[in-house]
């Protein structure tokens, strides 16, 4: 029976419906990660380089944010976008935009946290050296970005890995509408509830493949960071 499901799953990988779900997943999570990078990386560099009172507290908040449970984020975004919520008039609930928003909330702390620790891990001497050679404030930030660029790639991959695999938030704010807001994880959940394991397994295989690829890239990068 298990083998049957796998055989069926592999067959399903050729179907247009499966691919439209995969593409939607990549579109939603990819957009969320891209926006998260635009917000998280500059802010992370800023916090990573700056020394100000309360910095420790800010870092602690970010680290907590890295572990936010997706369902909690889903619930909060749901309440905000609900008709009775503060942004209800925008009618964003059960749209791809709502899903991007929820995943953004999940991805930003992750990108931010990894960036801050990556920038913080640059030896102080390197930045002093850049400054000593005449780097201005922005140029110093760019030098830090350059030094930590592998960490930043890591941050983006980790962010993507977290949100493309989460189900709680997208289910709640996206509604898993067939052909509209259905993504890989919500489909898996739906299919399993129906007792239809094959499609769930097919999408599971894709998710696993993505996770494996991301992991391979990450360990290569980490290897590179260590041997540097």
């Amino acid at each position: 029976m298990f083998l049957d499901s796998i055989r069926q799953a592999l067959g399903l990988l050729a179907s247009a419906e499966v691919w439209s779900i995969i593409l939607r997943s990549v579109e939603v999570s990819g957009t969320a990660v891209a926006v998260a990078a635009v917000i998280g990386i500059p802010l992370g560099v800023l916090i990573g380089l700056a020394r100000f009172p309360g910095r420790g507290a800010v870092v602690a908040v970010i680290n907590t944010g890295m572990a936010l449970p997706p369902v909690v984020v889903g619930l909060i975004v749901f309440m905000i976008l609900s008709r009775s919520g503060p942004l209800g008039s925008l009618q964003l609930l059960y749209t791809k935009q709502a899903m991007v928003l929820a995943q953004l909330v999940l991805a930003v702390p992750l990108v931010l946290g990894i960036t801050v620790s990556g920038i913080g891990g640059i030896p102080r001497e390197v930045l002093m050296q850049a400054k000593s050679l005449g780097a201005g404030r922005l140029q110093l930030a760019l030098a830090a970005l350059n030094e930590a660029k592998l960490t930043l790639v890591l941050a983006i991959i980790a962010g993507m890995g977290r949100i493309i695999a989460e189900v709680g938030a997208v289910m709640m704010v996206g509604g898993n509408f067939k052909g509209e807001t259905q993504v890989m994880t919500t489909t898996i959940l739906e299919e399993v509830r129906k007792g239809e394991y094959a499609l769930g397994l097919a999408l599971g295989i894709i998710l696993l493949t993505i996770a494996l690829a991301a992991n391979a890239v990450m360990s290569r990068i980490q290897g590179g960071v260590m041997t540097r």
Binding site: P123, E125, V126, M128, Q129, A130, K131, S132, L133, G134, G136, A143, N146, E147, K149
Partner: peptide, 19 residues
């Protein structure tokens, strides 16, 4: 004072090379 700093330069004990 960026202008003043740009009239100086430093070499430190551990030569940190940029990528």
């Amino acid at each position: 004072s960026k202008a003043a700093r740009r009239r100086m330069a430093g070499v430190f004990q551990q030569p940190h090379m940029f990528a």
